[in-house]
Design a protein around this nucleic acid. Structure first.
Length: 509
RNA sequence: GCCGGCGUAGCUCAGUGGUAGAGCAGGGGACUCAUAAGCCCUUGGUCGGGGGUUCAAUUCCCUCCGCCGGUACCA
């Protein structure tokens, strides 16, 4: 069986996910669900990145044991993802034993390969922050939080010989145009590589909360991002399930935020090369979701809680809005006004009402049963719209162009409303042309069957409702639907009884 | 500073060397199966400013303005 291994970035559990984080998980989930639809054995990995100073600080501030705090947060994260219908297969915590083992193994492999050495790390240390302050964050040479000049500190750390891999990575990325997507991210990576690379410090001394550097008793811990990247192979079974690892690795795609492109496209490949592990096939850097033009941030008060939105509007509404409104590779905008507007126009008015009016007419004009027409082929114009949506679907979905795939589907939906209008079954009824009505109803219901399958990766719960109202549960469960089913016209059997229920998408007033 | 992207109708965006398109919003109309939804028609833009190449530029080149991203220890 073909496999598909997809990952998202792991998150710092010092606060709960916001809509921007949800954008990433939902985008990846749409891909995972789509690949399952295509018949792939799909593994969708996500998790939390726990070995961070901020996480430890947060735990301490709450008077909790760090591990205990992380475990609680992991449950909370999982609850949010479940609420958003994010269908992950494996949720990793970087504090778990398998990951500690994998990280140490990676460190040892790099060391064995001669890529790890001790060197001096120089940084600006703020005594009040009790941490290093990034040079670019300094304001007039002072710590922006405490307005104090930080101390220049030198620390002996382990370094990773990243510079050694520059040529190989550059060559790899030049030869594999689809390794980094979208294009803009690839260009940035190529630029960075052309400017040259320096080695990286990958440990910190005196960390209690972290993975100990193997074979070092001086209190060094592996620096957070080095162990964070390794989560991808841990999740695939690197340290605890060789068979699984052989099956899943290399990852088909790492879905990440555009801000961490460098880690995934340069450092991570170098680590893997050093350890003799295959490189992932693709890294996709998605855009950010803004709130009224501003980045979502706690301090600005612009954070939107995805669980709250899902609670009020339903997970599918949030999922649909994010995917329909924003190209996955580019930045987008979130607002409740836009969400409501998109919901009403696309879901309630166009799709929901189309289903509802069709089922009502089926009940009214043909006793709620479908009649399979003798001439099964749809009218030429409908056929053309169907072909356009179906042909565009797979290439667009495969390329993370979910927005455009949906746009094509909505062109079809829009046409179906026009088709009903042109056919005017209510007039046909007065003229007693019931064969023609049956044909129109069949065409529309068949189209809706196909549409329900095509939109199921984006709005899984609603797609099932549509499928069920069409009465198709009686034929085959929706979970058994595969991509082939969208190409097969005429699957609705003669005499199938529709199961009209409450409107699937009730208008927001 | 350097590299890259963007600036097109109220909003979100598409687009081409031959004097601009879609969706939403706004306005009007006919209908009634439907969630006052759907359908049809329609208002609306000197395509950021300036210059150049060309018979012709929104589309190519230069320049200016504005916004954004990258420019290593930020997941």
């Amino acid at each position: 069986m073909k496999k598909f291994f997809i990952t998202t970035a792991i998150d710092y559990p010092n606060s709960l996910p916001h809509v921007g984080t949800a954008f990433e998980k939902i985008g990846a989930d749409v891909m995972a669900r789509y690949k399952r639809l295509c018949g792939y054995e799909t593994c969708f990995l996500m998790g939390n990145d726990e070995h961070a100073v901020n996480v430890e600080k947060k735990a301490l501030s709450l008077g909790l044991d760090t591990q205990e705090y992380c475990n609680k947060m992991a449950e909370k994260f999982k609850a949010v993802w479940k609420q958003l219908n994010v269908s992950y297969d494996r949720f990793i915590q970087t504090s778990e034993p398998a990951h500690i083992k994998a990280s140490q193994e990676m460190f040892l492999r790099a060391q064995k390969n001669g890529d790890i050495y001790k060197g001096k790390y120089k940084g600006w240390y703020c005594n009040s922050c009790e941490s290093y302050v990034k040079e670019k964050d300094l304001v007039e040479g002072k710590c922006p939080v405490h307005n104090m000049p930080p101390a220049a500190i030198e620390e002996e750390n382990y370094f990773f010989a990243l510079s050694k891999y520059r040529d190989r990575i550059l060559k790899f990325i030049e030869e594999n145009p689809s390794f980094v997507e979208p294009e803009i991210r690839r260009n940035e990576v190529l630029n960075i590589l052309k400017e040259g690379l320096e080695d990286l410090s990958i440990s910190r001394s005196n960390f209690k909360w972290g993975i100990p550097v193997p074979g070092d008793d001086s209190g060094h811990a592996i620096y957070v991002w080095f162990d964070a990247l390794i989560n991808y192979i841990t999740g695939a079974g690197f340290s605890d399930d060789a068979e699984k690892f052989a099956r899943l690795w290399p990852a088909d795609v790492h879905v990440i935020g555009k801000d961490i492109t460098r880690f995934h496209c340069i450092i991570w490949p170098a680590m893997l090369m050093s350890a003799g592990v295959a490189l992932p096939k693709k890294v996709f850097g998605h855009g950010f979701v803004y709130n009224k033009g501003a980045k979502m941030s706690k301090t600005l008060g612009t954070v939107v809680d995805p669980a709250g939105v899902a609670e009020k509007y339903g997970a599918d509404t949030l999922r649909f809005f994010l995917v329909r409104e924003n190209p996955f590779g580019q930045d987008g905008e979130f607002s409740i006004e836009k969400l409501e507007s998109r919901y009403n126009s696309d879901l309630a008015n166009d799709l929901g009402n189309l289903l509802h009016r069709t089922l009502t007419m089926t009940e009214k004009y043909q006793q709620g049963r479908m009649a399979r027409p003798a001439d099964i082929a749809p009218d030429a114009e409908l056929q053309a719209k169907l072909d356009a949506a179906i042909k565009a679907y797979e290439p667009l979905m495969d390329a993370f162009e979910f927005r455009d795939a949906l746009a094509k589907i909505w062109e079809l939906i829009s046409y179906l409303n026009t088709y009903i209008e042109k056919s005017a079954p209510w007039t046909l009824a007065k003229e007693k042309k019931f064969d023609r009505i049956a044909k129109v109803m069949y065409d529309v219901c068949e189209s809706l069957r196909i549409i329900s399958i095509m939109i199921s990766p984006v709005v899984p719960a609603s797609a099932e409702k549509i499928y069920a109202q069409l009465g198709l549960d009686a034929v085959k469960p929706m979970k058994d639907m595969r991509i082939e089913d969208i190409k097969q016209w005429g699957a609705i059997p003669d005499g199938l009884e529709v199961k009209k229920g409450a409107p699937v998408f009730q208008r927001i007033v």
